[in-house]
């Protein structure tokens, strides 16, 4: 510390009047003692949350909706991960990937896509939109996508557009991928969303103007987020995996939630998100 101001800050920190006896230790351990034994495994935690939600929903559905058996049966599908078995290795599936790329009206070469993700077979933008009824979250500035996919959850499908690394979007820790941009049928429930976030994940809220000129609400997750929850159009909670486990921006426009996963700053993520769907 060569700077006098920095020395003063260090000195100030030492003089800050904070309690450093064993009271905090005692208080924390007492709190831990008073808590029911916690099941630590992430999957089990998720299962518990799903279980609580399922019971509540089952009660609500049986009261409010005709044909509760059918609806409740649908509910019990929610917690099951229905992500397809990994099948994509671009070098082995160039023709379908090319179809997706051609859909974006570019003639750029098909990028390599050497990672295995739970995305299933790539398809075309038209097919993805037809199957899900969702907008295809294309980002022109990221160039031709490596693939367009329809995955679950939810049962009705979500669209994931994969982009290769580029000068403006570095390779993700997973390798071979720059960004994943997705559209999902549903909205974010703040309370449930926060409950499912790892405490080591930083959650910030923000707004920005999207390509349609609308101000949209967004959530920025930094750190190593792994999963999140949204509500589908029936109000059912849907737990989904963040495939790149890297910085993630979620935003909502009407009854569609969008997601951008990329190892970029928040500002860059917003910049990308603001152009999703622009022509």
């Amino acid at each position: 510390m060569s700077d006098i101001l920095e020395q003063h800050l260090v000195s100030l920190a030492q003089r800050l009047d904070v309690r450093t006896d064993d009271q905090l230790v005692a208080d924390v351990l007492t709190r831990l003692d008073q808590q029911p034994r916690r099941v630590e495994h992430r999957a089990t935690r998720r299962a518990l949350l799903v279980g609580v939600a399922l019971v509540a929903a089952a009660i609500a559905v049986s009261v409010l909706v005709p044909g509760p058996r059918h609806t409740i049966a649908h509910w019990f599908g929610i917690g099951n991960t229905r992500i397809e078995t990994p099948t994509i290795v671009a070098s082995s599936a160039p023709s379908t990937t090319t179809a997706a790329v051609e859909q974006t009206s570019t003639s750029a070469p098909v990028p390599t896509f050497p990672v295995r993700l739970d995305l299933g077979q790539p398809t075309t933008a038209d097919d993805a939109a037809h199957r899900t009824g969702l907008p295809v979250p294309l980002v022109r500035s990221l160039g031709p996508p490596a693939g367009i996919f329809v995955v679950s959850p939810p049962e009705s499908g979500q669209i994931v557009v994969a982009y290769p690394p580029s000068a403006s979007v570095p390779e993700s820790p997973l390798g071979g991928i720059g960004a994943l941009v997705s559209s999902m049928p549903g909205i974010i429930d703040d309370g449930l969303f926060l409950k499912t976030q790892d405490p080591a994940t930083t959650v910030d809220t923000l707004t920005f103007t999207n390509a349609a000129g609308r101000t949209v609400q967004a959530i920025w997750l930094s750190g190593s987020p792994h999963e999140y929850v949204f509500q589908d159009r029936s109000g059912n909670p849907v737990f989904d995996t963040l495939r790149l486990a890297t910085n993630t921006l979620l935003w909502q426009d009407g009854d569609v939630t969008y997601r951008l996963e990329a190892t970029v700053t928040r500002d860059r993520a917003v910049e990308i998100a603001a152009t999703v769907g622009s022509s």
Partner: peptide, 14 residues
């Protein structure tokens, strides 16, 4: 801080 340490204990496996 008390709350944060309780959270940390719960998240120790992560």
């Amino acid at each position: 801080v008390q709350e944060a340490f309780v959270s940390a204990h719960q998240a120790m496996q992560t």
